[in-house]
Design a protein around this nucleic acid. Sequence first.
DNA 1: CAAAATTTTTTAGTCTACTAAAAATTTTAC
DNA 2: GTAAAATTTTTAGTAGACTAAAAAATTTTG
Lengths: 206, 206
Amino acid sequence: MERSQTLSLRERQKEGRRARIIAAAKSLFVEAGLDNITIEAIAEIAGVSSVTVHNYYGTKSGVLLALVAESDRELLETLDRNLAAPPPDLVNLVLRFFTLICDHTLTHLDKPVWRQVISASISGTEPRFSKLYRELDHRLASVLIREIENMKAAGRLDDDTNSIHLGWALFNLQNARFIEFIASDSKHQDQALRDLRNDLNALLPR
Amino acid sequence: MERSQTLSLRERQKEGRRARIIAAAKSLFVEAGLDNITIEAIAEIAGVSSVTVHNYYGTKSGVLLALVAESDRELLETLDRNLAAPPPDLVNLVLRFFTLICDHTLTHLDKPVWRQVISASISGTEPRFSKLYRELDHRLASVLIREIENMKAAGRLDDDTNSIHLGWALFNLQNARFIEFIASDSKHQDQALRDLRNDLNALLPR
DNA sequence: CAAAATTTTTTAGTCTACTAAAAATTTTAC
DNA sequence: GTAAAATTTTTAGTAGACTAAAAAATTTTG
């Protein structure tokens, strides 16, 4: 709050509007779902005009994108913090990774909203969405790859393992279960975890 | 054309309109993309009013759904026909499976349209879409599971392999690469195939 | 062939995202 | 404090999905 020297009044006001808009959108989206919310409603709660929302974020999906970008930053921090003590084996590494991701996503937004996010990332209508998601996937896979290399260095994994290929394979596997988890309201997280464990046990040599 | 006894004139006309609508939609979707096509345009080419299109299919996504349902039926037939001679090992089974799916999807619709399909199946806005997709995934995974059991019966696979778990794991793995393939215009099918091969080699014991 | 039943079309209208331009407001710079 | 610059709001409008009800057309039925 003491940085009035670096940011002009105008910039601070803009920042404030931005923050108010995504805060309003977040609560409304979770409350009623993306499709049932109008830009008008967001604008009203944020105390700006609907045209301003458009000028700031372009489209309704643009607002959602901003929401998600924020959440992504935190997820990567969370992973770095909580994967610190590396699990003893591959299966538990992936299960832990999966659990952290599920926990994180649900504390920020709910399933219906995440569905819209994943949906938008695939549809390609909003190229920024696709880009953001590709980048996030890359960063997440990198976390797994890093951990695999740590395990290799610690002698807990065969030396001729290809960390990059294995990392991506495991990421894709858990991501499929993540999407399945998000796509269905009735799918519980512990069930998804069991399914993933079955996947891993069926594939990996013991 | 000789079944005027079983189908009344009215039913045949309805059938005809239905067929004309999805044929019109198919060509228009591929030509210009879902978002750039209006119901009006579909109706005009099909020779009906726009209200009729709504009455028949509900929403624009509903039209797309009908298109996809048709394609699904054919895909399952194709798989049954072409997987007849079972490949010698797991990796080649999955690679073949993947190739058949990619080939089939691209002969029917193009990537932009398939993106909308996958996107709609996840968004959950159109519950029928999600349902159709869950069912298709189930059937596709069942094909893999069946082939795995054949391999087990032929002694080419360990007897204590859990076919169901392994089948789903492999399906999810190839499906992740399929979605990646569809999501990006620049991703070529042979590159996707190489990626999938790397996934499989990294995971499966040799 | 005429009445009844069915279905489509026409008509009219709502809703909301999104856009462009003019008008009003507010910050900034001197 | 005032002129200039930046930014928001107001205003006005387009487009297209979707809906409801009345009107028109067509098939079916006896």
